[in-house]
């Protein structure tokens, strides 16, 4: 009897632990729907999805890099690089849209490759490497745009298409985002190629012994991160019909949102754990917090406070779980009970 009960309680906490981001998402969504004025209508929900889609692209890369046990601080600069390149190539160099987007993605991938090579061949901690490349990339972006922004100069065609609601709640840009999330989710969960990322992050040595080229895997993760960040920036710029070189240099930056969402989604910075889909839901959760608080008419200070509180609660929850597990590790409850009974 007792045994069953124990298992049950373990089951619930296990369930909560594993799906906490979905529970958090559902709770916040329900609260917002119930209380926030002007929140629950198609127009606003679409706007949340549109707002989230930029961060989601950063979070995809951040998740994969973190699963490998690394960190990528350069995603925000690479996002800006993708944005200014796609508009700059189109407006200043007269490329077609397709070529502009492809070159922007390639540039992001190149930055990722550089990150990956410095981390794996130069053996420098990814925090430092990407901090350096973040500075370099942001310098390059400013240099390319001369410190100003670039626009498509009245060419709204593709931008309007991106922002068109094709199926209810989903604009084209959001659809592309969701497809990207599903693709990477499937790759990570269902393919050998994807599972290997978890092995690299979980235990590098074991992964090596299992025949995985760990260095190549880490470099691949950075390339994915770079190209996704550039694609996200490019799509945002297209739907905005202009590109800004300095997004995120002030205030809460997309970088911080991406890191926070990845962690809230349950990806561990130590590596080997997490998933793209959970990060996606986490970004939506953060967006709902921001949006609902704006609906309530609260100031920015409440938004930043709430964002920090959610992040802190998640980190603390995770830490406490490990702390408790650590504490009872190796304790054999049956033996203790036998001693108590006597």
């Amino acid at each position: 009897m007792r045994k069953v009960k124990e298992k049950g309680s373990k089951g619930i906490s296990y369930f909560v632990d594993k799906y906490r981001i979905f529970i958090l998402f559902a709770i916040l969504l329900i609260i917002s729907i119930a209380f926030a004025p002007n929140f629950f209508n198609a127009f606003n929900l679409t706007s949340i999805m549109k707002g989230a889609s930029l961060y989601i692209f950063l979070a995809i890369g951040m998740t994969i890099v973190m699963i490998c046990g690394q960190l990528d601080l350069s995603v925000q600069s690479v996002m800006n690089l993708g944005a200014v390149l796609v508009i700059g190539l189109r407006t200043w160099s007269g490329f077609g849209w397709i070529w502009s987007i492809l070159i922007a993605i390639a540039a992001g991938a190149a930055m990722g490759l550089i990150n990956g090579l410095i981390v794996t061949k130069g053996k420098i901690h990814s925090f430092i490497t990407t901090l350096g490349t973040m500075t370099i990339t942001s310098g390059l972006v400013f240099l390319y745009t001369h410190g100003g922004s670039i626009s498509t100069e009245g060419d709204f065609a593709l931008g309007d298409l991106m922002d068109q609601t094709l199926i209810p709640l989903f604009t084209l840009r959001v659809i592309i985002t969701v497809v990207a999330v599903l693709v990477f989710s499937l790759i990570l969960n269902r393919t050998r190629f994807g599972r290997a990322f978890y092995m690299v992050g979980g235990n590098k040595d074991t992964a090596w012994l299992a025949g995985i080229n760990t260095n190549r895997k880490i470099t691949t993760a950075f390339i994915i991160s770079g190209s996704m960040a550039a694609l996200g920036g490019a799509l945002f710029a297209i739907s905005q019909n202009s590109a800004v070189p300095n997004m995120g240099t002030k205030g809460i930056s997309p970088l911080m949102v991406a890191i926070a969402a990845t962690i809230i989604g349950g990806t561990s910075m130590a590596g080997g754990k997490g998933g793209v889909f959970k990060s996606f839901v986490a970004v939506l959760t953060i967006m709902i917090i921001f949006n609902a608080l704006t609906c309530f008419g609260t100031g920015y200070e409440v938004q930043v406070f709430a964002n920090g509180l959610v992040l802190a609660a998640v980190v603390l929850y995770e830490a406490l779980a490990i702390y408790r597990a650590d504490k009872i590790k190796g304790i054999r409850t049956e033996l203790l009970k036998e001693v108590q009974n006597k």
Binding site: L71, M256, I259, A260, I263, S268, M269, A270, G308, L309, L311, A312, V315, L316, E318, A319, L320, I322, Y323
Partner: peptide, 11 residues
């Protein structure tokens, strides 16, 4: 409690 130092201080 061994919370992740970067994320906790960020929060």
């Amino acid at each position: 409690f061994k919370a992740n130092p970067i994320i906790w201080t960020l929060a």
